[in-house]
């Protein structure tokens, strides 16, 4: 073998690959719309301090219709609520809450669900039976019943919501991962890794998990949308983030009694949450479409 310097080309950086997959998404109109909506809300949340015309918790002028001028200049574009807080500013700051706790809860749920799913699917046997049974038990609770009971018992706070979401979603994630692993574990490259004596954790983490990422990313988008709904519902039921900080569900709950007379107070937060969830759902659909084509 002649001695020559051999350039082993670098692996593409993961950022580059992420950009490439976004480029792929361009082919799905639905996915692009979803991405645009999500990005819009992310930007709103990031720059809420700059964008919001008023402080979110300042009580200025109660029960004002959209488009009214504020006493000290500026305008209540979306009106104010029953105690005089600017709805637009509250929606913007509320986006921040949702986009912090939603992804956080989802990530927590995944970091519990993925190892469980890998273990159940790859190790199998008793491990699988025990994990699957636990998952079945938790999944047999109607989700909201579970949330209501958990939150009623441990109290409403941001951390508790994250805990509750993790507890309630991890089993579903586990099932999906398990299914994917059952399919992937009979691939020949896994077999090859086994025949060279790789330890099980490495097979799960390096050989199997990366190949499951496609469906998992799609699932994560859908789940994120659902977690946002959940946070909203809890807020709506009065079990969400404690007031006065703005929370979309809570805003609707506080004002819905007056919705007959002042529909704008509940309407705009409804539109906000629906559009964000729609964004994630469309994005998931687009990703799925693109990944199936490849």
């Amino acid at each position: 073998m002649s001695e020559q310097t051999i350039e082993i080309p670098r692996r593409e950086s993961s950022i580059l690959r992420a950009i490439k997959s976004v480029a792929l998404l361009r082919e799905s109109a639905v996915g692009m719309v979803g991405l645009a909506i999500v990005l819009f809300w992310v930007l709103v949340a990031l720059f809420a301090d700059l964008l919001a015309p008023f402080p979110p918790n300042a009580t200025i002028m109660p029960l004002v219709m959209p488009g009214t001028e504020a006493p000290d200049g500026g305008m209540f574009l979306l009106g104010t609520d029953h105690i005089g807080r600017d709805i637009l500013s509250r929606i913007m700051h509320g986006a921040r809450q949702v986009l912090i706790y939603g992804p956080l809860a989802t990530v927590c749920a995944y970091s519990v669900g993925i190892p469980m799913g890998l273990a159940a699917g790859y190790v199998g046997g008793l491990t699988d039976e025990v994990l699957s049974f636990i998952a079945n038990v938790i999944l047999s609770f109607p989700v909201l019943v579970l949330y209501v009971i958990i939150i009623a018992t441990i109290g409403a706070s941001a951390v508790n919501i994250v805990i509750a979401v993790t507890f309630a979603s991890a089993p579903g994630i586990m099932r999906i991962v398990r299914g994917l692993v059952l399919d992937l574990r009979s691939r020949e490259y896994v077999f090859a890794a086994q025949t060279r004596g790789e330890p099980p954790w490495r097979i799960m983490a390096v050989e199997i998990l990366p190949n499951a990422r496609g469906p998992l990313i799609v699932d994560a988008c859908l789940r994120l949308g659902y977690v946002i709904i959940t946070i909203g519902v809890l807020g709506f039921l009065g079990l969400g983030l404690p007031p006065p900080d703005p929370d979309w569900g809570g805003m609707i709950n506080e004002t819905r009694q007056m919705a007959m007379a002042f529909p704008h107070m509940a309407l705009f937060p409804c539109l906000a949450i629906s559009s964000l969830v729609l964004g994630f759902n469309l994005l998931a659909d687009g990703l799925r479409e693109v990944s199936l084509r490849d």
């Binding site: 909203g232 569900g249 629906s274």
Partner: peptide
């Protein structure tokens, strides 16, 4: 069907 599943029940109740 994607659009309708994106609107949470409390929101569609309001709407």
């Amino acid at each position: 069907s994607i659009v309708t599943t994106s609107v949470p029940e409390f929101a569609s109740a309001v709407l």
